[in-house]
Write a protein that binds this DNA or RNA. Sequence first.
DNA 1: ATGCCCGGACGTTCCGGA
Length: 260
Amino acid sequence: MKIVTWNVNSVKARFDRVLNWVDANQPDVLCLQELKTEGDAFPFDELGDLGYEAEILGQKTYNGVALISREPLEDVVLNMGDGVDDPQARLIAATTGGVRVVCVYVPNGGQLNSAKYPYKLEWYARLRRWFDAHEDPSRPTVLCGDFNVAPKALDIEQPGNWEGGVLANDVVRAALQGVVDWGFVDTFRHLHPQAAEYSWWDYRRRGLAGRDGMRIDMVYATRDLAAVCTAAGIDREERRETPGWTKPSDHAPCWAEFDL
DNA sequence: ATGCCCGGACGTTCCGGA
């Protein structure tokens, strides 16, 4: 089973690229973030033609997440439902092909001194409580998405540009670790302990050529599932500009394969 | 010098992204 996460930065602007990528790469499960639509622009019909069904939690302009699978999507959950007044569409979960899949778009955090930063930290704390209350770490579970945290200095191409900021400091890393400690393994890092590969390149820093990438998109799996993870990688080519073709997202698809 | 690029919209400039 091949599971992929991809922050597409508007599914409407990325319509052709998403369908082309799915057709070329044939994932079993695809998790998308930053749809930036409530659903009218989502390619339900075109994905159906390729053999997929989809569930989405849309939002106009910002956020929005989707789960796309060849197998039925069951027991769908939309956002955490924890009583917090939070209208942002950042979590969708479902069971498909025998695996519980949770797709998240973690808040960016803005600046350290902005209100968005404590919102990010609280979102991570809520996510851990949500797992404690609703999910079972003994079940095969995948948590994937855009975590807006580089787990280690190794995950940053130019640490001097980012260390200490909202994506790379001890506090946000501890917040991410709090969720990971529920029972997850970072599949990419598990299989490639020393690999310097990245999943996001800022549009403002000349893309891939700017050599300033970060690995902030991950596919986490529970231990038993990670034990049968046979391959994991990042499709850096998808981040490349293609003359005469739709522009790339600033994030690359990140994938893991499980021998199920 | 910390900027540069994108997508979206109560759009012609702003916000958010990370």
